[in-house]
């Protein structure tokens, strides 16, 4: 696995250097024989992006970065937005397969839904880059968070904060996303991995809030009522956990209950860290993911044959942000993506 990551990282980097070299070569006024073929490799190519839905920080961030690169290198970039509807997404993917773009960047809703279609797409000669959610079908590239690792990381932080004697108690609560969502299932797996080794930590509530802040708020409020000495809460998505944080604040326990959540690391995450809504936020670094996706796209378009049999997994380096880490540049905004 390590070597693959290394390989996947270095390859795009090499391209970057090559491109840089062209830039230098041009400055000297010498016509580089490699330049035209390289740039021509992008002409007339098509990259399609199939997110879960546009309109939230992750997909908007990736989309903006992919579009930026496409405009620079002159290939065609299309977004097919199924708006959270898995059936529409499956249909859009089916449709894309019949249209045969060069690359499809897929944001899977879960491990299952697109598995068979992705196999078909690869059989049809389309390169597939999966983003942030691995399908049961491995494809050329996977770029995204390691969800089990994310869960482990969050659990470790809570175990640290709520170790016997450190917090008011060893009671913690878990606020999942949608029960059946893969991101949720994998995170809970990671959390379980850690907690099974720490029997002293007591989970008093393990509820799903359906990615909905209001529901998270209601659940947290009830849990805090029942367990005024609650020590920590593991939340699964920062968008949803603004509600969890609001319930903590309303109970007057800001700073007393350790709330760790995760997300794409957009500006709102930093704001919530700063005002104490979140104690910690694990960021999977959308700008970094965007760069990785772009490198993968370049590598494939450059030489489809060479990358054909690759199976590259690029796990995003996770970053745990706390209030101390909040400084300009720690979180991204749509404007900061290209700086």
């Amino acid at each position: 696995m390590r070597s693959r990551v290394w390989f996947g990282r270095v390859l795009p980097a090499l391209f970057g250097i090559t491109l840089l070299a062209f830039g230098v070569a041009r400055a000297d006024g010498i016509d580089d024989p490699l330049r035209a073929p390289t740039l021509n490799a992008f002409k007339g190519k098509t990259v399609a992006f199939l997110p879960l839905s546009m309109g939230f920080d992750l997909t908007e961030g990736w989309g903006a970065m992919m579009k930026h690169q496409a405009d620079e290198l002159g290939y065609k970039f299309e977004i097919r937005d199924p708006n959270w509807n898995t059936d529409a997404g499956a249909q859009a993917l089916t449709q894309l397969i019949s249209e045969k773009p060069d690359i499809i960047v897929v944001h899977n809703p879960d491990v299952q839904s697109y598995a068979r279609l992705l196999k078909k797409a690869e059989a049809a000669g389309i390169a597939i880059i999966q983003v942030n959610m691995k399908s049961a079908t491995p494809t050329q590239y996977y770029v995204g968070a390691d969800w089990i690792g994310l869960g482990e990381r969050a659990a470790n932080e809570v175990v640290k904060a709520c170790a016997p004697g450190k917090g008011p108690s060893t009671k913690i609560a878990i606020v999942q996303g949608a029960l059946t969502a893969a991101a949720s299932i994998y995170q809970i797996k990671g959390v379980d991995n850690v907690l099974s080794k720490h029997p002293e930590i007591k989970v008093v509530s393990n509820q799903a809030a359906d990615w909905d802040a209001s529901k998270a708020r209601a659940v947290t409020q009830t849990v805090l009522q029942q367990n005024p000495d609650l020590c920590g809460i593991i939340g699964f998505w920062d968008g949803q956990d603004t509600g969890t944080g609001a319930a903590i604040r309303e109970a007057g326990k800001t700073g007393k209950v350790f709330l760790i959540t995760s997300g794409g690391g957009a500006k709102s995450a930093c704001e919530n860290l700063e005002n104490g809504t979140f104690s910690a936020d694990t960021s999977y670094d959308v700008p970094g993911q965007g760069r990785d996706i772009n490198s993968a796209i370049r590598a494939i378009l450059e030489d489809k044959a060479a990358t054909k049999d690759l199976r590259v997994v690029l796990y995003t380096p996770l970053r745990v942000l706390t209030k101390a880490d909040v400084k300009p540049g720690a979180c991204w905004t749509p404007q900061s993506l290209f700086e």
Partner: peptide, 16 residues
């Protein structure tokens, strides 16, 4: 009331 309680409004509740 919903929005001020959680400091945000999630339009996805429409599909819920």
């Amino acid at each position: 009331i919903t929005a001020t309680a959680v400091e945000s409004m999630n339009t996805r509740i429409v599909n819920g």
